[in-house]
Design a protein around this nucleic acid. Structure first.
Lengths: 222, 222
DNA sequence: AACAATAATGAAAAATCGTTCATTTTTATT
DNA sequence: AATAAAAATGAACGATTTTTCATTATTGTT
């Protein structure tokens, strides 16, 4: 997990960084609000911790900036301010949570876990290997460009990604993607798999759709 | 907004109910955890407030039950317990937030607003009037049944709902829905609006698409 | 009221998609 | 190796969607 800590108190920042890196996370420190804005403008983070009071630009202003840019990255404000109106202001400006200093590291960890979990559970994106599906706009994207999929091909690829790593029977696929109770005598699945394979191959994707004789398909990357 | 308050202290419950109904919300009270579970099993709520300590079933158990059933309804735990491990437990079990008693009504309101706003911003559903769009399966549903929309019609209706209440120019619509930089000489927007209007009318929906002469369209319900 | 611009309408042409069909290839079993 | 079943393949057919086109209706201005 990529964590941004915007905190001018070097001791607090270092302590937090130590804690998070011990858990296998990658941490960047911004020493003031301006630097935090610069980082969030160009670097991806899983969560952003903002100290309310900082030089140059306050944490709440950074929060306003992040939300104004359209980003939904989870934001937690760290604050010594205990007045209700500050808390209300933070939440109204789009912060996901705030923690009052002094705080325990366990509580902060739990709140980070909670906001990140919520964010991920509601993602409208599916990613497998280097293929990314936007579930709303129904676009499939790779670093090499967009894969132009029909509605049925998109549905099939989505089903494959969701069930990656386990064998999908043709009955299951037919029910889920075609909404049919049984497999028709014509080979609609094979024809659509063929079309999908062709489009993935034309985009130079790795081979991911494996036929399992007599059982169905396995979606896996070699 | 539909609010469920699970609280055995009748005074607290009544006070909260009074506050929320003054803001135009609809409130149901469950006097214990068992009743709360029954309600959430059969009634839709926008947010659920759970007192941690309650007869029969505790608030944390209700939370476990709700999350176990797959529901993502926002949950806030109300607790007199101030130990960190309780807070951590609540967040880990899927509560969206917790508030320590005694709390101010302003803070509670702000937290409710924040969790509900987050939930709605990440919802894969758009609702306007009695029309509901599932953004993943791309189905449009009303109490009278499903509206059978083509891909382009769905995209147009989605755009209308997102921009409801303000005038959408044909240039904006063309760019957003057709991904064209300028409006073509043929009347593709008018033709698609016609088809969409027909389908909404066939479903007995209220008239929602208003033409604004020389400007574009306004999506509003009369 | 006259006129021009804009929007709505319905039919059909063009484009696209999904399925069917026939054949070839592959897999598994004996 | 022979056989049968399953899967892949490519072309074309049928279905659906989108756009075009021509006309009618509506709106706004003078």
């Amino acid at each position: 997990m990529e964590i941004l800590i915007a905190e001018d108190d070097e001791q607090i920042a270092a302590s937090l960084k130590k804690n998070f890196t011990e858990d296998g996370n990658h941490v960047m420190i911004a020493k003031d609000g301006e630097e935090a804005i610069n980082f969030t403008n160009s670097i991806f983070f899983d969560v952003v911790l903002l100290d309310w009071r900082m030089p140059k630009v306050s944490g709440i202003e950074v929060c306003r900036h992040i939300r104004g840019s359209g980003s939904k990255v989870p934001i937690i404000l760290l604050t010594a301010l205990s007045e209700i109106k500050n808390k209300v202001e933070a939440l109204n400006l789009g912060a996901d949570d705030y923690v009052t200093k002094p705080f325990s590291i366990e509580e902060l960890n739990a709140r980070i876990t909670a906001v990140v979990r919520r964010y991920q559970n509601n993602s409208n994106e599916l990613i497998f290997s280097d293929v990314s599906l936007d579930l709303i706009t129904r676009k499939a994207q790779t670093p090499r460009g967009e894969i132009n999929l029909t509605a049925k091909e998109f549905d099939l690829l989505r089903y494959f990604i969701i069930h990656k790593g386990s064998i999908m029977s043709k009955e299951d696929i037919c029910k889920a993607v075609w909404n049919l109770e049984s497999v028709p005598s014509t080979n609609i699945i094979e024809a659509t798999v063929k079309n999908l394979r062709k489009k993935l191959e034309d985009n130079n994707c790795k081979s991911m759709i494996k036929s399992i004789y007599g059982e169905g398909y396995l979606f896996i990357v070699e």
